Each structure stands twice: as structure tokens, then as C-alpha cells.
Simulated scan of single mutants.
Amino acid sequence: MDGQLFGNEFLYRSRDGLPAQVDRWRSDRQDVATAMVLDVLFGDGPPADTTFAFVNITRSFLVNDRPLPAHPGRLVLEVVESVRADDAVLAGLQRLRQRGYRIAIDDFVGDADQVKMMPYADFVKLDCRDVRRQGAGLVQLARRHGARLVAERVSDSLLVEECRAWGFDFMQGDLLGPAVTERS
């Protein structure tokens, strides 16, 4: 947390640049949205940027039903909260880690499926609102397997100080820089 940019999260947006609430869509439509984001980022090879690219990934990408870019170096596969930790998903996480992909667990609240995926996680992302509701024990649980912790929804300087006290490694939120939409 030295103020340096570590990475960016890339999300699917509506044509007018607004959040599209993809997490409420049917899984097949979520797959298409993920594929579009990956194509924009990696369609012509890995981007020249040197920061990490966090991209929400659905089950289909984890179990090899849909292809991932062949450039794992900077891509962080952010496992969305709707993914259940069945045998195929856990095997996929292990396989992808062995191939050089980094894994993040998104919106960690400590549910059983997320806990099963933690041994494969390089990053665990926690919404600060959940940490305030559930307490520091949630942060301790998230750190259990050595993943680096990312505080999401950091919206004011008081929350920055709370995140430091909780022991987060990275922060994400509007206070740190507004979300932007770029069209390709």
C-alpha cells in the first residue's frame, strides 16, 4: 500500500458505459460478457501495460468449457461469487495455477465454497462493508492460506486507515480513482 498502481479491474459495461449488473444475468450471458472483456484486453496479444488485469471469470472458463487467453502473465482470474467449488472447479483452479494464471476470489464473505477455493488463491477481495459487518475475523479467515488481500469499495480516507489497520495489502475504490469506461 505504497500508493503505486498494482492493477486494474476490467468489467463489462453497457453500451452507454454504465454498470450492466452482469452478476444478475443467466450464466451463459455472463460467459459471453467475460469472453468479450478478455477479447478486448488480449485479442491482439498481451497488452503493453505492466499492471495486473483483474477480470471476472465464470465457471465455464475455470472448467475449460471456454478458452482463456494464452498469456497468463498479468491476467488475474477473479472467481465470481456465484461459482460453486465442485470437483471440476477445484481441479480447474489447480490446473490454471500450474499454467501460470493468478487467481482471485471476489467478494469473499467466508462461505463454504469460497473457503474451499482459498488454497488456490493469490488474492482475496473483500468488500469493506462486509468487513465492517462481520468484523476482523473475516480478514483473518481470508488470509489463512497466504493470499494477498484487496479491500474493495474504499470510498473515503477514514476507510483507508481502517483498511491499513485490518492489514490489507491493496485497496480498490473510488477514493483511489474513479472508474472509467473506454471504448475500443
Results as ranks from 00 to 15, higher is better:
2 D>K: 15
2 D>N: 14
3 G>E: 12
3 G>Y: 04
5 L>T: 14
6 F>P: 00
7 G>P: 06
9 E>N: 07
9 E>Y: 03
14 S>V: 00
15 R>G: 12
16 D>Y: 07
17 G>K: 08
20 A>N: 13
21 Q>M: 13
22 V>M: 14
25 W>Q: 13
26 R>T: 12
27 S>H: 12
28 D>Y: 13
30 Q>K: 15
31 D>G: 10
31 D>L: 05
33 A>F: 03
34 T>M: 00
34 T>F: 00
34 T>I: 02
35 A>T: 11
36 M>S: 10
37 V>G: 01
38 L>D: 03
38 L>W: 08
43 G>P: 07
44 D>R: 15
45 G>N: 05
46 P>V: 15
48 A>P: 01
49 D>F: 02
52 F>I: 05
54 F>E: 04
56 N>D: 10
56 N>G: 06
59 R>S: 05
59 R>N: 08
64 N>Y: 01
64 N>Q: 14
66 R>W: 10
68 L>P: 10
68 L>G: 12
68 L>W: 11
69 P>T: 09
69 P>D: 12
70 A>V: 11
76 V>F: 07
76 V>T: 05
77 L>V: 08
77 L>A: 09
77 L>Y: 01
77 L>C: 13
81 E>S: 11
81 E>R: 12
82 S>K: 02
83 V>K: 02
83 V>L: 05
86 D>N: 13
87 D>A: 15
88 A>T: 08
88 A>S: 15
89 V>E: 01
90 L>M: 13
92 G>A: 05
92 G>V: 02
93 L>P: 04
93 L>V: 06
94 Q>Y: 03
95 R>H: 12
95 R>T: 13
99 R>N: 11
99 R>L: 14
99 R>E: 13
100 G>N: 09
101 Y>Q: 11
105 I>Q: 11
106 D>S: 07
107 D>M: 04
108 F>C: 02
109 V>P: 00
110 G>I: 00
111 D>I: 00
111 D>W: 00
111 D>K: 00
112 A>Y: 05
112 A>N: 07
112 A>R: 15
112 A>S: 12
113 D>F: 04
113 D>N: 12
114 Q>G: 12
115 V>K: 03
116 K>A: 15
117 M>D: 03
117 M>E: 03
120 Y>V: 06
120 Y>H: 14
120 Y>R: 06
120 Y>K: 03
120 Y>A: 13
124 V>K: 01
124 V>W: 00
127 D>P: 06
131 V>T: 11
131 V>W: 05
133 R>S: 04
133 R>G: 00
133 R>H: 09
135 G>A: 09
137 G>Q: 10
138 L>E: 08
138 L>T: 11
140 Q>W: 07
141 L>F: 04
143 R>H: 08
144 R>Q: 13
145 H>K: 01
147 A>D: 02
147 A>N: 03
149 L>Q: 04
151 A>I: 10
153 R>F: 14
154 V>Y: 07
154 V>G: 00
155 S>C: 10
155 S>K: 05
160 V>A: 09
161 E>D: 14
162 E>N: 13
163 C>K: 00
164 R>W: 07
166 W>V: 10
169 D>I: 09
170 F>I: 03
171 M>A: 15
171 M>Q: 08
173 G>E: 06
175 L>K: 02
176 L>D: 10
177 G>V: 14
178 P>I: 00
179 A>Q: 12
180 V>W: 09
